[in-house]
Amino acid sequence: MAASALPGAARLTAVALGSSGDEPPVTVPRDPAREAARRELAKRMYHENDPSLLQRALNAFWEWLGRLLAKAASTTPGGTLGLLVVALCVIAVLAALWWRLGTPRRSPSSTAPLFDERPRTAAGHRAASEAHAAQGHWNQAVQERMRAIVRALEERALLDVRPGRTADEAAAEAGRTLPGHADGLRAAARHFDDITYGGHTADRQVYQRIAQLDSDLGRSRPTLVNSTARDGETG
C-alpha cells in the first residue's frame, strides 16, 4: 500500500521507518545578514587601534604581577600596608649598601711596569706632564709626573735603573733613601695606580701635589743608611 493511502499517523510512521541512514544530514542555512556582518567586522580598518602583540603581552604581564602582589598582600601580616613596609625596607637596605660601597670599580693593580718601552729622561717626562696639565688632561699629567719623579731618582743614582719596576716598588725603595718623603711617594704611587689601573680620575689638586713632590725631591739630600748606623753606634 502506498504511504499516501494510509491515515495521517500511519503515514508519518511509514515515512520515518522508510528513511535510511545514507541520506545527507539536514543543514540549516546560515543567516546571510550575520555572515555579512562578520565579514565586515573582519576588515582591517576596524582593527587599526587594537593593541599590538607586545602591548597584549605587557598587559598580561601586569595583570599577572597585580595578581601576584595581591596574593602576597593577602598572606603578608598587615595586608597591603605590610607589603609596602617590606618593600621600603628592602629599598632602604639596598640604598645603604650602595652608599657604603659606592660605585663598583675595578680593583687597582700595580703589577704592570711604570714605564713603557720608550726610554725618556726625567726632563722629557716632566715636559710631557706640563703639556698635559696645560690642556687639563689631569690623568696623563699625573702619570707623566710620577714617571718623571722615578726617572729623576734613577738619574741621581738614588734608585737602580731596573726595567719592569712598578710605581709601588719605586715608592717603597725611594722612601728608604728619602724617609722624609716616604708618605708623599706612597701617596703619589697610589694615585698613579688608581688612575692607570683602577679607573679613577685625577684633578688639578692631585697633579699639583705630585708636581710639588717632584720639586721637593729635587732639593732633597738622601739619607745614607750606613752613615746613620755609624752615628748611632758612636752616640
Rank of each mutant, 00 (worst) to 15 (best):
A229D: 03
L81D: 00
P77S: 10
W64S: 11
A123C: 03
G21F: 01
E130G: 08
A171K: 10
R147E: 15
P77G: 01
E48V: 14
G218V: 02
P25H: 09
D50I: 01
L6Q: 12
G218S: 05
N226E: 13
T75V: 15
T13V: 11
N139R: 10
A127E: 04
S74D: 05
A174K: 02
V150P: 00
R118G: 03
G232D: 08
N49I: 05
A157R: 15
R145N: 08
P104H: 08
S4K: 13
P29T: 04
N226Q: 05
A73C: 07
T228F: 06
A229H: 09
L224K: 07
L88Y: 02
G124F: 00
W62K: 12
L54V: 12
T75W: 12
A202K: 10
S215Q: 14
L213F: 07
R209N: 12
A131P: 00
R147S: 15
A70F: 08
R156H: 12
T223L: 15
R147W: 11
D22G: 13
V93H: 03
P32I: 07
D193C: 00
Y197V: 03
R11M: 07
A127Q: 06
P32L: 11
V150Y: 03
L217C: 07
R230C: 01
P7I: 05
S227G: 10
R190L: 12
K43M: 06
L97Q: 11
T201G: 09
R67K: 08
L12R: 08
G102E: 00
P222C: 04
K43Q: 13
Q208E: 15
R176Q: 14
A10G: 03
L185V: 03
G8P: 14
A92W: 04
R190S: 02
P113F: 10
Q212I: 01
A122Y: 09
W98L: 08
M1E: 01
L224S: 13
K71T: 13
D231T: 07
A202L: 05
A16E: 09
A122K: 11
Q143E: 14
R165P: 04
G199Y: 06
A10C: 01
L153C: 02
A172F: 05
A189Q: 13
W138K: 08
A171M: 05
A5K: 08
E63C: 01
V85T: 02
A133G: 00
G164R: 10
D50A: 15
G235D: 00
P222K: 15
L84T: 02
R34L: 15
S109P: 04
R156M: 10
L83G: 03
E23C: 09
L54Q: 11
I149F: 01
G175L: 00
P222E: 15
S220T: 15
Q212R: 14
L54K: 09
R204E: 09
L178G: 01
V86I: 13
L114T: 00
